[in-house]
Structure formats: C-alpha cells, structure tokens
Simulated assay, not measured.
Amino acid sequence: MPYDQQNDIPDEALLVLYANGDAGAARTLTLRLTPRVFGHAYRMLGNQADAEDVAQEALIRLWKVAPDWRQGEAKVTTWLYRVVANLATDRLRRARGVALDAVAEPQDDAMSAADRMQDRARQDALQNALATLPDRQRQAVVLRHIEGLGNPEIAEVMDISVEAVESLTARGKRTLAKALAGQREALGYTDG
C-alpha cells in the first residue's frame, strides 16, 4: 500500500500489517511514532544521545511484540509511552549508581486484610444498629453523620424544622451508642 494511503490507518492496524509482513506499514509507523517517542524520552532524560537510545529500544520492543499484539487492549502510543518511561527510569537509576534492587518498595497504603475485616465488622455493626432506629431518626442520623449534611439542609430534605432535626439526631445517637456499647472491644475500640 502506498505511503500516502497508510497515513490514514490507525497505529494499531499498521502494527498488525507489519506483523503480517508489510514493511511499508513499519516505515509509516516509525515515521509517525519516532518524534513522539524521542520527545518523551528527551523530556525524561534531558540528554539527546540517551533519548535516542531509549527511543530506538522502545521501537525495537514494539516490533518484537507486533506478532502478539491484541487490538483493542491498548493503544500503541500508550504502550510505547509506558515502555519509554520504564527504560528512561532504569537509565536514570543506573546513571545515579542505584541498583534497581536497592530501591525501596513503595509504601502500600492499602488496608491489611485484618484491617479490612475489622472495618467490615464495624460497618455491619453500624448498619445493624441503624436498622433498629425509627425511620425518621435513622434518616436524620444518616444525613447528618454519614452524609455530612448540616441541620438546615436536613430540615429541608425531611420537610421539618431545624429543632426537630436536632431532636431526631440526638435521640438517634443515644440509641446507637447504647446499641453499640457492648461491642466496643469486639469491634476493636479500646479506651486508652
């Protein structure tokens, strides 16, 4: 297919054409992607020679994965940007003399399994206690303490006075406190 006709073909389709033996598709894709890949590498590395090396390595990796490319899973440019970022990061670490194994693992901010179980138990206990409240008390408590609405907003939602909201939430909180009081230790709440 002539070059000018290949300019309208998406990157992913050109990669598949290359994988099926179309050298013109590889040429078109290389001309299209090299400036982007080089620019990304250069912005990360700040060195033209290093950026050229990284861009070349990224494109070589693209040609190697071409036969296994699954259209629709990722855009070629997205995949290439990730490869360039990884190659540039590795190059920067080596330049600083930091071995990849010496880099500390990032802190995992996810809750541990035990913490998730504790959190789930607390949510379940609260939900069960809320279910024991009369409907209007439950609605007022949920709107105030779970949804975070102010008393005037709750009064508008429930079509009652602000004083009635205050009364409903106060009674609801007292009832919840009594319902949950005997479960403090089991739910992981300790005084101290």
Results as ranks from 00 to 15, higher is better:
residue 131 A to R: 10
residue 162 V to R: 15
residue 71 Q to L: 13
residue 26 A to I: 00
residue 25 A to F: 01
residue 139 Q to R: 15
residue 75 K to H: 12
residue 153 E to N: 10
residue 173 K to W: 07
residue 87 L to R: 07
residue 112 S to Y: 03
residue 73 E to D: 08
residue 64 K to G: 03
residue 170 A to Y: 11
residue 52 E to Y: 00
residue 99 A to H: 13
residue 191 D to Y: 11
residue 7 N to R: 14
residue 111 M to G: 05
residue 160 I to D: 03
residue 158 M to R: 02
residue 74 A to D: 06
residue 124 D to A: 14
residue 175 T to M: 05
residue 78 T to P: 00
residue 165 V to Y: 07
residue 120 R to P: 00
residue 166 E to Q: 13
residue 109 D to P: 01
residue 117 M to P: 06
residue 29 L to G: 02
residue 151 N to M: 14
residue 146 I to L: 15
residue 137 Q to N: 13
residue 60 I to Q: 08
residue 139 Q to G: 03
residue 153 E to S: 11
residue 47 N to M: 06
residue 98 V to D: 05
residue 175 T to V: 03
residue 3 Y to G: 03
residue 137 Q to P: 09
residue 156 E to Y: 05
residue 40 H to K: 10
residue 13 A to F: 08
residue 80 L to I: 01
residue 50 D to P: 00
residue 64 K to S: 09
residue 91 R to Q: 14
residue 82 R to G: 13
residue 144 R to L: 09
residue 85 A to V: 05
residue 165 V to H: 05
residue 164 A to W: 08
residue 18 Y to Q: 06
residue 38 F to C: 04
residue 33 L to I: 08
residue 38 F to H: 13
residue 106 P to Q: 04
residue 175 T to G: 02
residue 139 Q to D: 15
residue 102 A to I: 00
residue 148 G to C: 06
residue 44 M to D: 03
residue 154 I to R: 00
residue 91 R to C: 00
residue 93 R to M: 15
residue 168 L to F: 14
